[in-house]
């Protein structure tokens, strides 16, 4: 006997992600899910951005890591609330891992929640966390072939941060090819060229992010604005 099912394999995670999103939308909290390879510079980009962001908005951070709390310790030094999630071997964060730690934040007093996913170009992409936008971080030293090799991340992301552009003269990376392929995979994507080490380009990304935070607040019904 054949039983027809037609149920999404990720439906349980997607359901929890929808519940997370409801919590975020209640107070107009803007949430980003940052993804990229180990060593792309996700944490360093964040450290530099947070120092500018804290002048305008309340930021909170969730750090995903397989075993350690090294990244959370780095973020903590910048004076923002941060929670570490250790996946204990899993290569990605799942929506229920996020929902478990939300109670530890004062969400009503927060305008921007940054989730740094486990360093990985493949697995985290399929698991929605309830975020407003996915952001890919790719360091140019990884090579200009990466968008075509890992297209889903670039297809699903609203913005891509190309990090380590200060090293462009020391690599064989072709920036035109890199930009062209990213746009061919996702014509609507925003590209930011930054160097977290020198700080170049971080300001532009932060401005864009602050616009997004503001846009989400404006969409809230008036009696629910917490700003």
């Amino acid at each position: 006997m054949e039983i027809k099912i037609n149920t999404g394999i990720l439906s349980s995670n997607d359901q929890t992600a929808v519940e997370n999103k409801k919590v975020f939308d209640q107070t107009g909290l803007f949430v980003i899910n940052m993804m990229g390879s180990p060593g792309a510079g996700k944490t360093t980009v964040l450290e530099k951005a947070i120092d500018i962001l804290v002048d305008s908005v309340q930021v909170a951070v969730i750090e995903g890591d397989i075993y350690t709390s090294k990244d959370a310790q780095r973020i903590e030094k910048h004076g923002v609330p941060v929670k570490q999630i250790n996946t204990g071997g899993a290569c990605h964060l799942e929506a229920k891992m996020i929902s478990r730690v939300l109670a530890e934040f004062n969400l009503a007093a927060t305008q921007l929640l940054i989730i740094e996913n486990v360093g990985n170009l493949v697995c985290p992409v399929e698991f929605n966390l309830g975020e407003d936008i996915k952001i890919a971080v790719l360091s140019i030293t990884e090579g200009d072939d990466k968008p075509l090799k890992y297209p889903l991340l670039f297809r699903e992301s609203g913005a891509v941060i190309l990090n380590k552009v200060d090293l462009v003269d020391y690599t064989d990376v072709n920036m035109d090819v890199l930009r062209r392929d990213i746009i061919r995979i996702n014509p609507g994507i925003q590209i930011f060229e930054v160097s977290a080490r020198t700080g170049r380009g971080i300001g532009e990304w932060v401005q864009w992010l602050l616009e997004k935070v503001k846009e989400k607040k404006i969409r809230l019904p008036k009696n629910r604005v917490f700003l």
Partner: peptide, 8 residues
Amino acid sequence: LYLESLEV
């Protein structure tokens, strides 16, 4: 990405 059917 979904489970279509089971044969039982």
